[in-house]
Design a protein around this nucleic acid. Structure first.
Lengths: 201, 201
DNA sequence: CGGCGTTTTGAGAGAGCTCAACATCGGTGG
DNA sequence: CCACCGATGTTGAGCTCTCTCAAAACGCCG
């Protein structure tokens, strides 16, 4: 959900871009929460360090994602943010965002709607991971992500990205897609997968 | 996150309890979105039916969870909700909730904060599922869920519930916990797990 | 053309799942 | 008070499936 769709222009005007080299820290646990960030390019991981000194990864955000939304409601950050690769992030000042929400309740509502949709989507992805079989997991993914025609799935990135989202190795995904195609369940085209119309089980 | 902590009393006054028998529908895709629901007891699954007639499960909500938050921002429901077991749900009228938010911006903010925290928590659980090894997954779970003392983990439900949250069979969880205890990494007590203080890797 | 990332297929091993049996605990009722 | 019952907790053994490691074809871009 692009920032543009839920954050009013007046708050987007506060945007500050920042380049991060791999390993560079964006913010630390305990720092004053000053902004939320959109990952423009690269990857940023959110983590905490346990008392034994191990880094516990809470999430790895990729391009297009937003992190530290909760910082709007907290005085300090609750984890570290470190660039996992060379990255470009765009920070939106917390005060500017909150001011925009105060001035324009519609904007606050759009923010709430974005979060609610994200909760839904994350819950679905979590449910997907409860499916152990690669074949069933992929079927679930296809069923959830069909387009308006109910038969075509057009993944955003590469199949490797899809494999990562599914929590499968890319080999397992390729193999299983090939098997599904052999079985006549799907057909594959350039950057898309078309489901065959037929019931199962 | 209990409803009480983010929904003002005036909106909670609109609550309507409803008993559902296993298999009974709470709402259907396309129905007018009239309320969001708290699961008081039992389990309710959110699902969609694909054109082949298969039920695609989007999420299974248990006691204490809230569903259909996004219905606040939508005219209709976007999936079906069916009781998976005999259940008790509490519906909060959408109009009452929205009215409360309009009257009291603090309440709207609390709602946003709750959603943002939930996104965080779901992202972490998703990240956890990227860890394939049962042992490492459990270590991650323990590290993320330590209490204030940094050493004690007190799961809410049974170990079977923990296994479900971790996406492991309960056998795998029992075995691995036993192995961790043998290895001296943890100690187990009544309803709690205590981490030994020591670095690893 | 050369290099890099994606896509694809192969073979083998290991980890967790499945099925099974049993122990334990809390509650229920005779 | 004890027997019974269901759910949780625990351990064993085998097997399947995915992961891992490897190699190669393919497509794209400089």
């Amino acid at each position: 959900m692009p920032v543009k769709e839920w954050l009013p222009a007046i708050a987007r005007a506060s945007a500050v871009d920042r380049k991060l080299e791999a390993g560079e820290m964006l913010f630390r646990l305990g720092d004053k929460a000053a902004a939320l960030y959109e990952i423009v390019a690269g990857r940023v991981r959110l983590s905490r360090v346990d008392r034994a000194g191990n880094e516990i990864i809470l999430y790895v955000a990729g391009a297009g994602e937003t992190i530290a939304e909760a910082s709007l409601f907290s005085a300090t950050y609750h984890c570290d943010a470190v660039a996992s690769s060379d990255s470009l992030v765009r920070g939106y000042s917390k005060s500017a965002v909150l001011a925009a929400f105060e001035k324009d309740p519609k904007a606050a509502q759009a923010f709430g709607a974005m979060l609610a949709r994200q909760v839904m989507s994350l819950r679905t992805r979590l449910e997907q991971r409860n499916i152990r079989s690669a074949r069933e997991r992929i079927r679930h993914y296809l069923a959830v992500n069909v387009g308006a025609d109910g038969r075509t799935v057009a993944p955003a990135g590469t199949l490797k990205d899809v494999a990562a989202e599914l929590g499968l190795t890319h080999e397992a995904l390729y193999r299983t897609l090939a098997a599904l195609e052999r079985a006549g369940e799907i057909k594959r085209g350039a950057g898309k997968i078309v489901l065959a119309r037929r019931a199962r089980i």
